[in-house]
Design a protein around this nucleic acid. Structure first.
Lengths: 178, 178
DNA sequence: ACAAAATGCTTTAGACCTATTCTATTCAGG
DNA sequence: CCTGAATAGAATAGGTCTAAAGCATTTTGT
């Protein structure tokens, strides 16, 4: 009956638990951020696998396309998904093979292709998106609406500072997005 | 001169940028958490690679051992690093080959081994740890000390709620670690 | 016009990680 | 004892990700 072996790393002492009192607060904070993200990500990955036989990267790519019905170029997908271009090629290949997305050649620039959801892809994504949102809402339901706002704001500062520090060149107004 | 190609996914519009106003706040929060974590993680990985020719998993494993000089068993490492057991086997193999950690057989239980840092491993880790901490401090220096505290607290609630919800059995006091 | 540089995408080699399965060892009852 | 269940660790197959290199196709400087 399905060995059960060790279904995902078990609960208990985690990476952060070992943090020592004398560790710098930034280090403790980073370890906790990492732990939280991994907890949520793991849950979402498991759900996507068991409920829809898909993966987070595939879902992520389709999600980007759904927000851009006109399609996205490979390098745009790479940038938005924050992964390398070669990676996007591989994931796109799979989704094309499954008929969920399509590569549309660009007459204007024959190097480029535009990736779009097929009708079947849009339909499949719509089904998943609803459940996905419910999982995330559930996972974050330990916080009040107010706490959500506070957390969002604090993370905005983290993001701005951690992403920004390449303002050595002509920083003309540093467009922060949010 | 080293193609430069696309040195890490470029800046600009990211995953979260595409979030729509009507997306649920939990979804927006999750996307931002993911973005922040990835920004920091990417930076640390790059530094570890360029400065010390190592990787985050290897650093993470050594970090656990450094906090436990008596050594850890494979399954303890797996739990603390929040990765699968097979993964720990592979990373340990590499570090053993490089002479940074050693497998010490356990007479009391001949199935088990205890993993310990070698002297060389402890030395190598000490060098890296200092810089690593400085990177993290720098990346999170956009927040005040007070904001660090607030963020740590909010993430504690996230962690507790996202990790905990298996309290269906005799939840005898639910030991939260922090 | 035309060679050089840049751009869009793919390919390749290698590390990582997971789920699953296997082997060896220990433990629990009868 | 001795058989079956549980446990520790390792092996395997497959998806993911990266850096680097390779090919086409624009774009740019002259």
């Amino acid at each position: 009956m399905l060995r059960e072996h060790a279904p995902n790393p078990p609960r208990g002492a985690d990476r952060e638990t070992a943090a020592r009192p004398d560790d710098h607060r930034a280090l403790r904070l980073w370890l906790r951020m990492l732990t939280c993200t991994q907890l949520i990500e793991r849950h979402v990955r498991n759900q996507l696998r068991t409920r829809f036989a898909t993966t987070l990267p595939r879902f992520d790519l389709m999600s980007q396309l759904q927000r851009h019905p006109e399609g996205l170029k490979m390098n745009e997908l790479s940038r938005r998904m924050m992964v390398s271009g070669g990676n996007v090629t591989g994931i796109t290949d799979q989704l094309v093979k499954e008929g969920l997305v399509e590569r549309v050649p660009q007459p204007s620039d024959r190097r480029a292709v535009r990736i779009k959801l097929t009708r079947a892809g849009a339909k499949a994504f719509a089904e998943m998106a609803g459940e996905h949102e419910a999982w995330v809402i559930g996972l974050l339901s330990g916080l009040t609406r107010r706490e959500h706002q506070d957390l969002l704001g604090l993370l905005a500062k983290v993001k701005q500072h951690a992403a920004g520090p390449d303002e050595s060149k002509g920083a003309k107004g540093a467009k922060i997005d949010y």
